[in-house]
Simulated scan of single mutants.
Amino acid sequence: MTAEPGASEVQALWWLHDGRWYQEVASRFGHGTANEINAAALRVVAVRVGKTVARLMGKAADAFDHGDLVRALDLCRRRMWPDRYLRVEYAEGDDPDEVTLQLTRNYALHMVRLAGSLEHYRCPCDEVRAGWLEGLGFAVKENRTEGCLRDGDPACVQVSRLCPNSIQRNTDGARPV
């Protein structure tokens, strides 16, 4: 055994910290305040993650095609939550300015349920996606959630509509997946 913890142990300890922090704020100031602060803090982190991913991809938002956007969002998600914490698929719709994420596993909701706070917890998903997109350099027209695991739906369906023509079209007319 070494004194230096591995990345997984550090991650687990931060998840424990995050969960206890939320529970302490909720018990002292109410779930509404805990949800509000949680969403605001996660948005700040998400903007930073989006900026990091944009820098790593080496592209400005106006050079992204739909496939680039999906890859960027997936990189953002992986930087914040590894695959073991979230199961996500990206759906392609008819609107080229829209991207849809479908979550079928969310570790945070599992932990909130175990803590007995699921009834009062409000998912910060829209704020997280807005932060990623802001950090990537996109102007967002709308973020909405059309289904939520917290509410018993089979998946969280999260839709982001970007300002018109903010995603480049392929020159051959095909849309990347």
Rank of each mutant, 00 (worst) to 15 (best):
L86E: 13
C163L: 14
C123Y: 04
A12Y: 02
P96R: 07
R55W: 04
G137R: 12
T33C: 08
R79H: 07
V128A: 01
W81M: 09
G58C: 05
P96G: 07
S117L: 13
A115N: 11
P82M: 06
R113K: 14
A60Y: 05
K59I: 04
S27D: 10
P154M: 11
Q23W: 02
D18R: 14
A61V: 03
K141C: 03
A46D: 06
T33S: 05
T100W: 02
F138N: 07
F29V: 06
L42E: 15
G58P: 00
S166V: 07
A61M: 03
T2N: 05
N165W: 08
R84M: 06
M111W: 09
Y85A: 14
D126G: 04
V70T: 03
E92S: 11
Y85N: 14
P5M: 12
N143M: 08
P82H: 12
N38P: 00
V44G: 10
E146P: 06
A155L: 14
Y85D: 11
F64L: 00
R48V: 11
P5E: 05
M57T: 01
V157A: 03
T2C: 00
C123K: 03
Y107L: 07
G131H: 10
D95V: 00
L162P: 05
L42T: 05
T33L: 13
W14V: 10
G135A: 04
A40K: 13
L136E: 08
Y22S: 04
P5T: 03
V88G: 03
P164F: 08
N106T: 06
D172Y: 02
E142V: 08
L118I: 11
D68P: 01
A46E: 07
R79N: 08
V140C: 05
V128E: 10
S160G: 02
R105K: 11
G58V: 04
G6Y: 08
Q158F: 11
V112S: 05
K141I: 01
D151P: 01
D95L: 01
W81A: 08
T104C: 01
G147M: 01
N165R: 11
R55P: 00
V25I: 15
P164A: 14
S160M: 02
E142F: 03
P124W: 10
L13C: 03
A7S: 14
T2A: 07
E92N: 07
R175Y: 05
R20S: 13
R129Q: 11
V177P: 04
Q11I: 04
T171P: 00
R43I: 05
L13V: 06
E9Q: 13
L16V: 09
R113I: 01
G131M: 14
R84G: 03
G93S: 09
W81I: 01
E89V: 12
R77Q: 15
E9N: 06
H120T: 09
W81E: 09
L86S: 07
D18G: 14
N38K: 04
